[in-house]
């Protein structure tokens, strides 16, 4: 055990980089680089190896008190155990969906869960409208309620093929297959270049891929 004994000790207890690498598109080296990133993000406010919501907001918006509907949804999905913080394993497994080599089905499912605001198993029309209103207010738009309804109605007509007023997972899959640009933000090219993005790690690692 010349490499495990010296290099895996810095990861949080219970998280084996080899196991994480086997469950995700990341290599062991990339898991270690992600841990460097995680350590940085989890120590900006409270240095406790956990990403608190304020630390997540600080990383996303450079402001620990700024949040929006979508950053809250992303945080909630990353916080798989729903205990109010993101642990390292949750961080790695959630980010793995955003890897350029992650399966398209995983990206489609993650995006669906993101937009299924109330976790009913459907993206309801009311949820779609809530998201449109949230992004428009973020953009300081002053569209009328009628204009917002027309955006929402048009998208529902395209996506809700069975016309029951909500988008189910199969309809979502059809819709993003026809509109692949909708999955663009589900891929982070950075994740393919982690060891380049955090080269400090490469200098001191001896873990083979």
């Amino acid at each position: 055990g010349c490499f495990r004994s010296t290099k895996t000790s810095k990861l949080p207890r219970g998280e084996d980089p080899i196991v994480l690498a086997s469950e995700t598109p990341f290599t062991v080296n990339e898991i270690e680089a992600l841990h460097d990133l995680f350590k940085k993000l989890s120590s900006t406010i409270v240095d406790d190896d956990l990403i608190h919501k304020e630390e997540f907001q600080l990383a996303l918006f450079s402001n620990s008190s700024k949040q929006n509907l979508f950053s809250n949804r992303v945080f909630d999905l990353f916080d798989a155990k729903h205990n109010g913080v993101i642990e390292f394993g949750e961080f790695v497994r959630s980010l793995s969906v955003f890897h350029p080599y992650a399966s398209e089905q995983d990206k489609i499912t993650f995006a669906f869960r993101l937009y299924d605001l109330r976790q009913t198993g459907y993206i309801e029309r009311v949820e779609l409208k809530e998201m449109v209103v949230a992004i428009l207010s973020e953009l300081d738009s002053t569209l009328t309620d009628e204009a917002v309804d027309s955006i929402v109605d048009k998208t529902m007509i395209e996506a809700d093929l069975n016309g029951d007023g909500r988008i189910d997972p199969e309809e979502w899959k059809d819709f993003v297959t026809k509109n692949p640009s909708l999955l663009k933000n589900m891929t982070l090219p950075y994740l393919k270049e982690l060891t380049l993005a955090f080269p400090s790690f490469v200098l001191h690692t001896e873990v083979p891929d």
């Binding site: 996303l60 949040q67 979508f70 950053s71 809250n72 955003f98 779609l128 027309s150 998208t155 933000n185």
Partner: peptide
């Protein structure tokens, strides 16, 4: 903006809250 031709999800996906690349910036 041309609201009637806009795809709601396309609009939503532009939210800064969904842009996780910021996590990788210093």
């Amino acid at each position: 903006m041309a609201p009637v031709t806009m795809n709601a999800f396309e609009l939503i996906s532009t939210s800064q809250g969904l842009n996780l690349s910021s996590l990788f910036e210093k």
